[in-house]
């Protein structure tokens, strides 16, 4: 029986053509830029997909960020919707964390950092010189890559924000805020009997959920998460992801993640960054099944990054 049909020889033909551009295994990252498809020229400010939404929480237009002479963000325009979970993905150094940190002016502390363009939260300029940055950061909370609890008790970690913002008048009110925040962070059952214990004695996953509770305690509208699970084990990661899903009912969440599977699991929309450009923004389902831009496709399928 002849099993070597012409369709197989066509396949072999196709593969021999593909062999003209071999992709060596284990090539170094810094040589990647010399190869395709990474050297695809991206037109500045041109984003494929759906970067804009009706009635956005954040309205960001023509944002440019530079560290001295280096442009880290190149003319990015994006809307972030209310109560949506949006994931920022992209290879290291693509600007996703820089862009995230613009949303609550975390870049202010870097002297050489310059932010240009229009960044609005609820139609108010984030970078207005008269704006109270502390108030802004209370509205736009942040959770970092590594859990960073204060070297205080579990209770004091959560109560810290409400205290300095004067959110509670009585001890009982503060107790309520602490309990509610810990409950929302899924930590109450584990922490209720040891509220006076040092937070630094908790496991990594518990510490990260404590940091989320601490962020929630000041009733923010937005929570920024910069790789919140990269230091956590799979079970703690699953807990935090569950939490993100629950929190999305009441908060707008922006999450930077290196785990594409995590972006696929937790977000409604996904934004793909590449070398300071915002290449594609789409519904997460679209991005992970049929991305529109070849760079997005190459990245999420593990062809570079």
């Amino acid at each position: 029986m002849n099993t070597m049909s012409p369709s197989i020889s066509a396949e072999a033909d196709m593969r021999s053509k593909g062999a003209a551009v071999p992709v060596p295994d284990g090539r170094r990252k810094d040589t990647l830029m010399e190869d395709k498809p990474e050297d695809t020229v991206i037109e500045e400010g041109k984003t494929v997909g759906k970067p804009f939404t009706a009635d956005p929480k954040f309205k960001l237009r023509n944002v440019d960020v530079s560290y001295g002479a280096d442009r880290a963000i190149k003319n990015i325009s994006l809307d972030i919707g209310r109560n949506e979970v949006i994931a920022f993905i992209g290879p290291s150094g693509c600007g996703k964390s820089t862009f995230l940190r613009c949303l609550n002016r975390m870049n202010d502390s870097i002297d050489i950092c310059r932010v240009k363009g229009s960044l609005e939260l609820d139609e108010q300029n984030i970078y207005d010189s008269k704006r109270d940055v502390v108030e802004l950061r209370a509205r736009v909370g942040m959770v970092f890559q590594k859990p960073n609890p204060f070297p205080k008790s579990i209770y004091d970690n959560v109560a810290y924000g409400p205290r300095i913002h004067g959110l509670a008048n009585r001890k009982s009110e503060l107790d309520d805020i602490v309990e509610n925040s810990l409950r929302k962070a899924g930590l109450w059952n584990e922490a209720k009997d040891r509220l006076d214990a040092m937070a630094t004695g908790m496991s990594g996953g518990q510490q990260q959920r404590l940091c989320i509770a601490r962020a929630i305690a000041v009733s923010p509208e937005v929570i920024l998460m910069d790789e919140p699970c990269s230091a956590l084990d799979p079970i703690a990661t699953a807990r935090v992801e569950e939490l993100i899903a629950e929190m999305s009912e009441s908060y707008t969440i922006v999450i930077v993640t290196h785990s594409m599977q995590q972006a696929a699991r937790v977000s409604n929309r996904t934004a793909y960054f590449h070398m300071g450009h915002l290449v594609e923004v789409n519904e997460t389902d679209t991005v992970f099944t049929s991305p529109q831009h070849p760079l997005t496709e190459s990245y999420i399928t593990g062809r570079f990054g």
Partner: peptide, 16 residues
């Protein structure tokens, strides 16, 4: 996808 004829599955970082 600019040119589907060139589309191949052999260009991942992971050779396996």
């Amino acid at each position: 996808m600019p040119n589907n004829k060139d589309q191949v599955y052999g260009d991942h970082i992971s050779q396996r």
